[in-house]
Nucleic acid binder design. Sequence first.
DNA 1: CTTATAGGGTACGCGTCGTACCTTACGAGC
DNA 2: GCTCGTAAGGTACGACGCGTACCCTATAAG
Lengths: 193, 193
Amino acid sequence: MGTRRRGAELEQAILHAAAEELRESGYPGMTMDRVAARAGTNKNAIYRRWPQRAALGIAAYRHLSDAAMPDPDTGTLRGDALDMLRRANETWSSPYGVILRSLLAAAADEPELLTLMREGSGADTMDRAWLAMIERAAARGEAPAAAAHPRVAATPMMLLRAEYAMRGVPSVPDEVLVDIVDEIFLPLVRGRA
Amino acid sequence: MGTRRRGAELEQAILHAAAEELRESGYPGMTMDRVAARAGTNKNAIYRRWPQRAALGIAAYRHLSDAAMPDPDTGTLRGDALDMLRRANETWSSPYGVILRSLLAAAADEPELLTLMREGSGADTMDRAWLAMIERAAARGEAPAAAAHPRVAATPMMLLRAEYAMRGVPSVPDEVLVDIVDEIFLPLVRGRA
DNA sequence: CTTATAGGGTACGCGTCGTACCTTACGAGC
DNA sequence: GCTCGTAAGGTACGACGCGTACCCTATAAG
């Protein structure tokens, strides 16, 4: 009975419990009651911090995945692009990706949550990485400097995302990634001479 | 009481009621109890036909929108492409689009429902329309014949879809559509000489 | 030592899904 | 015209989950 957790300590405990529930049962299974029970507390303490279930879900997801992706360096633009897509594909088709997608699905109705997700998902970081990648290729003389265009840089990831939305499948085949690079991305880059 | 509806008649009544509920209250508001009440029947009759709420939602949406999109014919490939994107943008940002998106969200977890959605949404029809559009441009000498490539044809719509997934917003600005056409689609087509 | 704050425990209202059970109309075959 | 299987109507209910209310208790600050 001695110690009663408060503040940050309790908050971490709740987040940890929520993340575990997410991992085990996915977002639909992440019940407030279960999280409270698992954290050894009650729903009061949770609702004082996150007003809605979805907010807790997003916070828990962020707590779960703090992946900092290093820049690729394969020596060629094609290799770098494929590397980026393949790593993204791995992430998205992993259990974390499944959770992320059910969160996205749940947030589809509520714009505020979607904004929260975007901020946490590092989409901007991703776009910057692609731009930097193209600039490195340009410095090597492998691509025209004008290819460092925001929409061109964002296109491959957008296509991958759309591919996920269309299929219900856990993973996008590698041929599709290759196709995106060879039929879309590289022609676009080379076309901007 | 005189007439008791059965079979197809009752089924249509239920679908109609569900579609009305969808239109008025959106998918989250389309309660089984409300649909039953509106159709002047009870949940039994519904569950005998659709095992889950989402299945009824999808069927009702299809019943609601039977839009057959005519091929665009503006005379130029650029005009045709913009036309297609703008019409899709209108559809998706309309109330129907909101419904469609929340349905997609609900179906995201279950592959069967996702398949149902894909079949009903006419995504394949859309892809064929884009291919046909490019072929007409090629026949006019406006594009190389090799531009009629499935992935190239599918790219603009995928980008638009991804744009919707990213923003929580009701509508994508027209500049983005123009950008997709001028910076991505047309360069891709012209690059396939 | 007092007091404000925050956590703990518990119960509950509400809405919704999906199911069970029985009653009642319809329609087909005899 | 009767019987009987099938399908619709009516109603109630169990289960579950969200979010809230209330009251009690530990902790930290003054």
